[in-house]
């Protein structure tokens, strides 16, 4: 099996500088497709690291043993002396996906709604996409002729009007899902507030997973003596 950072032993630790801050304008930039234009916002000040989303995704999406479409990594905030924050990771659904570019079979598509999907009718399991992904979000599934898979925002659930299973399961509403073209409720509030960041900036990529709540809260002063 291809090595994959989303496997259980490889908890990522990224520094604050590893990720670029994204302004509200950048979010607008990433709204390419026609309605709807799906995106996820994850508030690190809400994530409890409980891994309910990881278990829910694992069961619903039935990934191979030891491989997960989403995991919770530790996140070291250099501005805080306190313990790490928890940072959920998943496919970032790049606007110009490196995985798509390298696929000789043309199996990877960027849907109009922003979601990056893999066509298992075309995928031949060569795995170039796995190596091309800077976020290590992809894996090859040995049970299905090593075809490539990753998070697809639970397209089957979206098609039925439900939200992705990780969003539905999250007890503290740390994961918010919505339509950038028609944002509603808390999802809209987070967009309006701005200060979101994405993991894509470092790699020069526009992405559809945004993070909120990095140590700007006053609650960061932990005691360490």
């Amino acid at each position: 099996m291809e090595s994959n950072l989303f496997s259980r032993r490889s908890f990522l630790k990224m520094s604050f500088w590893a990720i670029g801050l994204l302004s509200g304008g950048d979010v607008a930039m990433s709204m390419k497709g026609p309605w709807p234009s799906y995106a996820m916002i994850i508030d690190l000040q809400r994530c409890m690291g409980c891994e309910a989303c990881v278990v829910a995704c694992k069961i619903a999406q039935d990934t191979p043993y030891g491989v997960f479409n989403t995991i919770i990594a530790g996140f070291k905030d250099k501005f805080s002396e306190g313990p790490d924050l928890f940072m959920p990771l998943l496919c970032n659904h790049c606007e110009d996906p490196p995985c798509q570019k390298v696929c000789p079979q043309g199996a990877i598509s960027k849907l109009d709604n922003g979601i990056v999907v893999t066509d298992w009718g075309l995928c031949d399991g060569e795995g170039l996409c796995v190596k091309a992904c800077p976020f290590n979000a992809r894996h090859l599934d040995p049970r299905y002729s090593f075809r490539s898979a990753k998070c697809d925002f639970c397209v089957e659930r979206l098609a039925k009007g439900a939200v992705p299973i990780c969003v539905e399961t999250c007890p503290s509403h740390a994961r918010l899902f919505g339509d950038l073209n028609d944002p509603l409720g808390e999802f809209k509030e987070y967009l309006d507030k701005g200060g979101l960041f994405s993991l894509g900036k470092k790699h020069g990529l526009d992405t559809r997973v945004f993070y909120a709540g990095l140590s700007f809260s006053e609650n960061r002063g932990l005691l360490s003596k």
Partner: peptide, 15 residues
């Protein structure tokens, strides 16, 4: 398009 969720029957609870 043959999506993994269809192949793996992830969809059955929605039917």
């Amino acid at each position: 398009m043959k999506l993994p969720c269809v192949v793996k029957k992830a969809i059955e609870c929605l039917d």
